[in-house]
Structure formats: structure tokens, C-alpha cells
Design a protein around this nucleic acid. Sequence first.
DNA 1: TTGCTCCTCACGTCACGTGAGGTGGC
DNA 2: TTGCTCCTCACGTCACGTGAGGTGGC
Lengths: 140, 140
Amino acid sequence: MSMRRTRTTVTVSHDRGVFMISVAAELAEMHPQTLRMYEQRGLIEPKRSPKGTRLYSHEDVDRLRRIQEMTNDLGLNLAGVEHVLRLEQIDAVKREMRGGELVPLKHTRDLLPRRMPPAEPEPSRPRRIPIRRDGEQPAR
Amino acid sequence: MSMRRTRTTVTVSHDRGVFMISVAAELAEMHPQTLRMYEQRGLIEPKRSPKGTRLYSHEDVDRLRRIQEMTNDLGLNLAGVEHVLRLEQIDAVKREMRGGELVPLKHTRDLLPRRMPPAEPEPSRPRRIPIRRDGEQPAR
DNA sequence: TTGCTCCTCACGTCACGTGAGGTGGC
DNA sequence: TTGCTCCTCACGTCACGTGAGGTGGC
């Protein structure tokens, strides 16, 4: 009867990488390949085991579910998801330095980078650089 | 020399419909057809002349340029634009009833409608209702 | 061997912008 | 008549999700 433990509660730190990709995918109700894609786009950054296997934390899974929500329920594309998450980031920072003036949201976008901040590997690419107003005025 | 006015400044109320679609489109640097599309999706609601011609206000054009920015520079799709504009709306309301507690943004999305509020004619449609986790587990 | 991991490439579907086509009134 | 408006329909392009194919180590 070596140390028979009945019911043990294991506490896992919220940001510790514990789920391999198949498990994380199942928890987040996503395709594993999708998780890899999101990582490539810089939406999520799972830890890695020494062998290189992705390890997702509880926080990571939560984030994935939020992304899932925006993507599936609200229909945002990934650029939209990135933008919203960034807005929340900014909002969190502003709340942190509370007590000061609240910056009116109309100007908040001035704080947003046109390109992603240093940490992010890939910038959100513009969809198109259209040549607009073409064929609108024959010759003027 | 009947009433020769040199340099008159006309003041136009910011929400008064004054630009017909071709002008508004040029000011916003968009295709007129795009403006019609945005209206159909509930992103913009220009006034109408008695004859039914759309009349865009300065506010409308500003809004169009903001949409343009999100769409072209940041790559958001229209669902994303709707969402962001709605978030700002909520934020504005919260700021209005200032002095009270700030609602943490993590919970802000609980205030968001799954479907659009009364004023909006068309709800943002979900992109897909995927049957996920298919082909992931053969038989379990 | 099986079942996972890693990766890259390719295809199908959908959103969205815009062109076209036909109407009607200054 | 011309040039605008209105509308609807259709097509091309791109994003994104996912399947497939081939690798390697418990």
C-alpha cells in the first residue's frame, strides 16, 4: 500500500504548458492544423517541450476559445481578431494606469501600430491595395 | 451687380445629408456600389432625398473613412468592422455614465448581442457552422 | 507497428468588392 | 441626349480552414 492517495488535487499554474496539440485542439474544439496556423500568424504562442512538441497552457486554451468565439459566432476574420485582442491589451494598460485621464476612444486608434508591435512575428497584411475610383470618371 | 458676395462661408451641420453617392464615394475613396453594399449590411445609413436619392452627411463620410481604414489598412472584414464599431459604442456609453465602476473588458463581450440590436436591419451572419473534430478520431 | 508529433503544399468555400445591365427622372 | 440615380445579378480574388503527404521519435 505504497502511499495510496485517494483523490488528489493537482494544481496547475495557469500559464504552464501542459496540453499537447491534439488535446488542446479538442479542448478548444478546433482542428490541430488550425492551431498551427494561428501560431504562425502570431495569434497564440504555446510553449515547446525540449523535443519541440507544442505545449498549450490553460490560458492558451482560453484564448483559443475566445478566438473561436469571434471567428465562428461573430464572423470576424483573423485580422479582426488580432485587432480586437490588441484593443483589449491597450484598454487593460489604460485601466492599469487608472486615476489619470481616460483617453477618448476616438483617438485610441492613434495608439495602434500600423504594423504589429515587436513581439509579433507577422504583421497583419492589408487585403488589397486597390486602385480605386477607376472607371468612375472617364476623363476629367 | 446684384448682391455680389465675395467669399461666403457656409456652415453645414455635421449630420445633414448633403453629398450624393458619387460625391460621397469620391470623398471616401470608395466605389459607389460599395457604399450601397455597406448600407445594405447596416454599416451606414445615409439620409434620402424625397426622390429616394441617398444623401451622405459629413459624419457619414467620416464613418466611411474609418471603415475604409479598418478594411484596407488593417484587413478587417465587415463583421470585424461592425464588432469594433459596436465595442466603441459600448465604450462611449460606459464613459458617459462615468464616475461609476469601470467594467473590466473581459466581461464586456457579455454585453454584446449575439444578434444585432433593434436598430440594425441585418444581423452579422456567422461565417460557417462547422462540424469540427471530424476525421480526428476514427471511432471512440 | 501504431499513433502521435513535426512540417509544407494544395484545394474548396465563402466574403467582398466591383463590373455590367437595365430603369427612371432631372 | 448625357449623366446621374436606382436596383439586381454575376464574376474574380483572396482568406482561411482543413485534408493530404511525407518525416521522425517515444
